[in-house]
Computed example of a mutant assay.
Amino acid sequence: MGKLYIVSTPIGNLGDISKRMIETLTEVDLVLCEDTRRTGKLLHELQIPKKDFLSFTDYNEKAKTPFVIEMLNSGKNIALLSDGGTPLISDPGYYLIKQAILNNIPLDIIPGPSAVVSAVVLSGLPSDRILFWGFLPKKPGNKREVFKQYRLLTEVTPITIVFYESPFRIRESITLLDDQFPNCTLVILRELTKLHQEILRGYPKEILYQLSSNPKGEITAVLRLNIDPKSH
């Protein structure tokens, strides 16, 4: 029986590659990835011999998982990658991991970069309790509901929330935050670890003034409400 490796890859800076990641990708028989061209370029940069790739995305994960399980059962070692960061964290892989466990297939992880952890550390906000929301809903009404639920949770215990947002919707989301929580502390981290990394801190209205009218790149937001929890 083969082994399934969950492999973290850089979120923007190739200098964050680990020796263990290179060793694992060199040795496996098959690489599952979201974008085969992007992953092929990464392996070329690392001078790793050419590999067999299988496109593995949110849209085809369930359909392709039986084939992957069959390959693992036949003795093939397989690596699961995302386009950047750690697989499964707002990326494909959950269904595959669940099925691998049900089939008693050995798992291993090659830990590494994560936008969530990096954002929390750089934010300067309390990190003792963190709620990671993933990507916010696209519709404004659903976003308001998320923020409302966060407010209710914060009234019970102080907690920092982390979420991803599209550069095309980030200004809308910050405007909603300004409407609901004008005095909250917000940190916007754009293009983490890349050449044009940008970190903006302040109240939502202040961030709107600082942020480009047409931001580009991947955005992670860290938020903390400045309210006291209810006493018990």
Rank of each mutant, 00 (worst) to 15 (best):
N77L: 05
K143W: 04
F163Y: 06
R169S: 06
V116N: 04
L80K: 07
G84R: 02
P167E: 05
E145R: 15
Y95E: 05
F163P: 01
S127T: 15
P113A: 15
P137Y: 04
N77M: 09
N73M: 13
D91Q: 13
A79R: 10
A119G: 12
I159G: 01
I101G: 01
Q99K: 13
L81Y: 01
R129S: 13
V120T: 04
T157Y: 07
G84S: 08
N73F: 06
S118R: 06
I161P: 00
Q149T: 14
K139C: 01
I97F: 07
Y94V: 15
S118H: 04
G141Y: 06
F147E: 01
D83F: 04
I89T: 14
V156Q: 14
K98F: 08
N104F: 12
K98Q: 13
N104I: 07
V162F: 12
P167H: 06
D91T: 14
P113L: 13
R144S: 03
P158N: 01
W133D: 10
P137W: 02
F132R: 09
I89Q: 10
T154S: 13
R171G: 09
N77I: 09
S90C: 14
P113T: 14
A79M: 10
L136Y: 02
D91C: 12
I170D: 00
L152P: 00
F168D: 02
Q99C: 05
K76N: 10
V121F: 11
K76P: 03
R144T: 03
L80Q: 09
D108M: 13
T160D: 01
L96A: 11
S166V: 14
K98I: 06
L102W: 05
D108P: 08
L152I: 13
K138P: 00
R169H: 10
S82V: 13
I97G: 10
I101Q: 01
V117H: 02
R151Y: 08
L72G: 05
P126R: 11
S118K: 08
W133P: 00
L88E: 07
Q149W: 11
V146N: 01
N77H: 11
N73V: 10
T160G: 03
Y150N: 01
A119M: 14
K76Q: 13
V116G: 07
G93Y: 05
I89L: 15
K76T: 06
F163C: 01
P137K: 06
G124S: 07
I161C: 07
L131Q: 05
L153I: 10
N73H: 14
P92I: 15
A115P: 03
F168C: 03
P106T: 06
I97A: 11
N142F: 04
K148V: 06
V121H: 08
D91Y: 09
R151A: 10
K76W: 05
G124Q: 05
I105L: 11
E145T: 15
F147Q: 01
I105T: 05
N104G: 07
I161K: 03
I159V: 14
F135S: 05
E145Q: 15
